[in-house]
Amino acid sequence: MQEKDIQAIVESVLAELQASEGATVDTAQAYPAADVDDLQIDLDDPTLPEARQQPGIERPINPDGLRALMAATPARIGVGRSGPRPRTAASLLFLADHGVTQDALMHAVDADLLEELGLFSVESQAADRQTYLKRPDLGRKLTEAAKAVLRDRCTKNPDVQIFVGDGLSGAAIDHNLRQIMPVLEQGLNSAGLSVGTPFFVKNARVGLLNDVNGIVDARVCAILIGERPGLARAQSMSIYLGYRPRSASTDANRDAICNIYEGGLNPLEAGAHAVQLIQRMIRDKASGVGLKLV
């Protein structure tokens, strides 16, 4: 029997099975619609900024004041209510924003961007994304292969070591890295500080600071890392910094600059802020709670 004959038989058997079990009914064919030419729904994108800024309160006490309040914050205020519950548009916009964040969670950092900025890549011990989510301990450690690469390629004993990790949002790195890296490097150079060899770690957690500095032995070690995504906002990045982090260092020994993105702390400002903080850490030989007590 010819291959295409077999295929034809399989298709006809499958079609019969589907018809008998109703497995994949074409509902449009099975239930033909009445004449609905007058039914036309063609919505504008409700996720655009101008749509988001529409007040949901029908008769506000102070309409201009309400718009001014809404303009003062990205928080979802002025959305209105029906009884105690949110109105339909606000409710659906929330679902859309949560949905797109869920879809984006597994986003991988743009390889071209890393190449453009001259960052080579190594991996944490979390071998894949699911392991990364369930096993933060593995995301805090470099693989032996990664350690060997860092020993081989990184300058040792710089004043400052900067590296990049995807964290929980690779999109945040895509969004901010091109702007912030030059500010950091130029700022540190003009402050007379030497900067180590930058690189990227896949499936990274903040605790990698300890492993990395165990190899490069910088005075200040900093990781640029994607934050846990917020609704419709997967582009927020943080910088975590430690003064001479070692294997026992914890968050209490670190400082952080958070919410770095164009609608939050602008990446250019964040870079300048980080340079100042690094200078202070080096001057006071401390970070985290220790720096606050100086």
């Binding site: 979802r76 606000a90 846990r228 609704l231």
Partner: peptide
């Protein structure tokens, strides 16, 4: 606001 914290990135 709508269960969406504009700073802490959680709901």
């Amino acid at each position: 606001p709508m269960g969406d914290d504009a700073m802490l990135a959680y709901q």
